[in-house]
């Protein structure tokens, strides 16, 4: 239970950073998808079955704070996590340089899928509710910049995230040992 709460708090802070911190450093429509990048990172290391709950939680938070209809970001993140974990199982190798390049590639693919999925779902929502927005362009003219920004952010946060995950795993193991000894 405490693990789930800590994950919720972690993604809560990530979403707030994406909404309130990053817009001051990046142009509108090129703001990096911090939450998406972290989800892709975890899905390549743990697989879909462990990360789908995180994607669900992150999607709900993102829908809340981006004022999107509930379900849009949830579905988009789940799709990205499914594809990323599938591709990671196929193509991720032990050699660190190739592994890193593959991860960057997954971030690029994940960004494009996320962008496309959100547009499709918003088009469906707009036409169901008969409101403006059903003519959103499928791919934004700034998608290239967004992919670049996502890749750069991934490069910056990759090693800290790796350290954080290793520390968490060690702490988790220590907790388990302590509980077993008791």
């Amino acid at each position: 239970m405490s693990k789930k709460i800590s994950i919720l708090i972690f993604f809560f802070l990530l979403v707030i950073m994406q909404v309130s911190l990053l817009p001051n450093f990046f142009a509108a429509q090129r703001i990096p998808d911090l939450v998406l990048i972290v989800l892709i990172f975890f899905s390549t290391r743990r697989g879909f079955s462990e990360v789908w709950g995180m994607a669900l939680m992150a999607g709900i938070l993102m829908d809340i704070f981006s004022f999107s209809p509930l379900g849009v970001n949830i579905l988009s993140f789940l799709l990205v996590v499914l594809v990323a974990s599938f591709l990671a199982q196929r193509f991720l190798v032990a050699y660190s340089t190739w592994k890193f390049i593959t991860l960057i590639f997954l971030v690029i693919v994940g960004t494009a899928i996320n962008d496309f999925a959100i547009v499709i779902l918003m088009k469906i929502f707009s036409s169901l509710k008969n409101i403006g927005g059903s003519s959103f362009p499928f791919f934004a003219s700034d998608l290239g910049f967004k992919i670049l920004n996502n890749s750069l952010i991934f490069i910056v946060i990759y090693w800290p995230l790796k350290k954080f995950e290793n520390l968490k795993n060690v702490y988790g193991q220590k907790l388990t040992l302590r509980n077993n000894v008791r």
């Binding site: 309130s20 817009p23 509108a28 429509q29 981006s66 004022f67 918003m122 959103f136 934004a140």
Partner: peptide, 14 residues
Amino acid sequence: VIGQDPQRLGSWVM
């Protein structure tokens, strides 16, 4: 202003 739209489909601030 304490927040901005992080996605490209809307355009809003908080």
